[in-house]
Amino acid sequence: MLFRLYRRKVATQIIDLLRALALLSLGIISGCVTVEEVAPWDRGYLAEAGMQWDLSSRDAKLEGHVYTSKEASSGGTGSAGGGCGCN
């Protein structure tokens, strides 16, 4: 029981951290946090295959499908896509 409580505490902390990240990104976008200006010709690393939001769009779609059929949550990745009876 104690272990579970501890685990829950750690998970809560991780979530707080990520909430901070969400706030940070909102700050950046609203212009409250300054970012380095990266010239168009200086984006070689950002164009790397490993830097894309989804490494495989087909896998992202399938993964979304699998999780939607196992968990109550869905969405957050863009469009909702087609329905299926798996839910």
């Binding site: 990104s25 950002l46 830097m51």
Partner: peptide
């Protein structure tokens, strides 16, 4: 069953090696 969904997001290059995004959705 009818489902309608909207998404709005923005991504920002932070440096030559970092990029972030944030998005909101309503279904």
């Amino acid at each position: 069953l009818d489902t309608h969904s909207l998404y709005f997001g923005v991504s920002q290059i932070l440096s030559r090696t970092a990029i972030v995004k944030v998005g909101l959705s309503y279904t």
